[in-house]
Simulated scan of single mutants.
Amino acid sequence: MPHCYQSIVVNAPVDKVWDTIKNFHDMSWAARAIEKCEAVGEKSGTEAGAKRILNNAFHETLLECNDQEHRVRYSIDDGPSPVSSAEVTHYIGNLHLIPVTLNNSTLVEWGSNWESVSEDAAEFCHQIYVALLRELAQQLDTN
């Protein structure tokens, strides 16, 4: 099963990072990479089943927003190649925050796995995760 994983330490407390990323309908923290985040339907951005379209291309559904575990899980239902529904199935993304108590920072992990006959989506997702994690760190760096 193909997968992708990236992580970064953000120099901000876990609660501040969580407040920034938990709303599925708000990607304003990543404005250089995500030009448009359109909420679809009536569900709130922290309610399982919420849907969004990113950059008029990625159709995603929120599967879990867990305040206790600081975890967001979502699916990509359709998108551009190589993550289109014709090329990839069962795409599950997982964004997880872990407090680094020694210096009050946050380890941010972003991973995903999916089913596909091709490995092309791995590098594609890798580049997106790197860009988004760097933007998050730049937005919240308290040093």
Rank of each mutant, 00 (worst) to 15 (best):
R134I: 01
T106D: 06
H70E: 07
I53G: 08
S28A: 13
A33P: 14
I98A: 14
A137V: 08
E42Q: 10
P80R: 08
V17F: 05
H70D: 07
W18V: 06
D15F: 00
W110R: 00
I8Q: 11
Q127I: 00
Y5H: 10
Q68L: 15
I34F: 01
L133G: 03
E64D: 09
Q138A: 07
D120I: 08
E69R: 06
Y74D: 14
H70Q: 09
E119V: 14
E115H: 13
V130M: 06
T89S: 11
V9I: 03
V17E: 09
M27D: 02
W18A: 09
V130F: 03
C65T: 02
L95F: 04
E47K: 01
H59I: 13
A137T: 15
W29F: 12
S112Q: 11
S28R: 15
V100N: 04
V14T: 05
A86H: 03
E119H: 05
I21M: 10
H70V: 03
S75C: 05
E109I: 01
E47Y: 10
P99A: 07
Y129H: 03
G41S: 02
N113E: 15
A122G: 08
H126K: 15
L62I: 08
E64V: 14
H3M: 12
T46Y: 06
R52L: 11
D120M: 09
A86C: 07
H3W: 10
L140K: 00
Y5Q: 12
E35L: 11
I53V: 06
R32Q: 11
A86V: 10
S75K: 03
E42I: 09
P82K: 01
V117P: 06
N11L: 06
I92Q: 11
Q127A: 05
R73V: 14
A137F: 00
P82F: 00
I76P: 04
G49N: 09
L133A: 08
D15V: 08
R71S: 13
R73N: 03
Q68H: 11
A12L: 05
L133I: 02
W29Y: 14
S116L: 05
C37S: 07
H126Y: 15
N104Q: 05
E35M: 08
F124Q: 06
N55H: 13
N55M: 06
I34G: 08
S112C: 04
P2T: 02
N94D: 10
V40F: 04
V117N: 13
V17Q: 15
H3L: 04
H3D: 12
A33L: 12
S81Y: 13
W18K: 03
A50P: 05
S44R: 06
V88A: 09
V9R: 15
V117I: 14
F58Y: 15
V9K: 04
E64K: 07
I98Q: 01
D141W: 04
L63V: 00
G111L: 09
N103A: 12
I128W: 09
N103T: 02
D15S: 11
N56W: 15
L54K: 00
T142H: 05
K51I: 15
K16D: 12
K16F: 08
H96K: 00
G111I: 02
N11W: 05
Y74R: 07
I92P: 07
L63M: 07
I34V: 15
L133S: 01
I76H: 11
E135K: 02
N66T: 14
S28C: 10
N11T: 15
K51H: 10
S112D: 10
A33K: 10
R32L: 13
C4Y: 12
P99E: 06
